[in-house]
């Protein structure tokens, strides 16, 4: 269906734009924690849009299921690793503050 293809293109473009915005945040934000912010949120949203775009072009049911599984697992992994990294970054910042005094 033409509508599905058009919708899929829309989602893929949206995903690309969100990825660009997340990379811009990664490059331009002043602080490491702010950059983690950009990565954790915009990246996952962009991945969701891309996966939605791809899903709309699929024929078989299991491919759709696998794609959503990929998105879910990436979400989970990104959240966990983002948390662990942020904790380590904060500890580093605290150590640096303590060293300054």
């Amino acid at each position: 269906m033409i509508l599905l293809i058009w919708l899929s293109n829309l989602f893929l473009t949206l995903g690309a734009l969100f990825f660009i915005s997340s990379v811009t945040g990664l490059l331009r934000f002043p602080d490491t924690l702010c950059r983690m912010h950009a990565l954790a949120k915009a990246d996952n949203l962009a991945l969701g849009c891309v996966i939605l775009g791809v899903v709309l072009r699929q024929d078989e049911f299991f491919a759709v299921g696998k794609l959503f599984l990929i998105w879910g697992v990436t979400l989970l992994s990104s959240a966990t690793s983002g948390f662990l990294l942020a904790r380590r970054i904060r500890r580093g910042m605290q150590l640096r503050e303590a060293l300054k005094k």
Binding site: V73, L76, S77, F83, L84, R87
Partner: peptide, 15 residues
């Protein structure tokens, strides 16, 4: 490890 990593491990191992 903290609680979040343990939760992650619990969810990912069966997967």
């Amino acid at each position: 490890p903290g609680a979040i990593f343990r939760l992650y491990l619990r969810m990912m191992t069966p997967l």
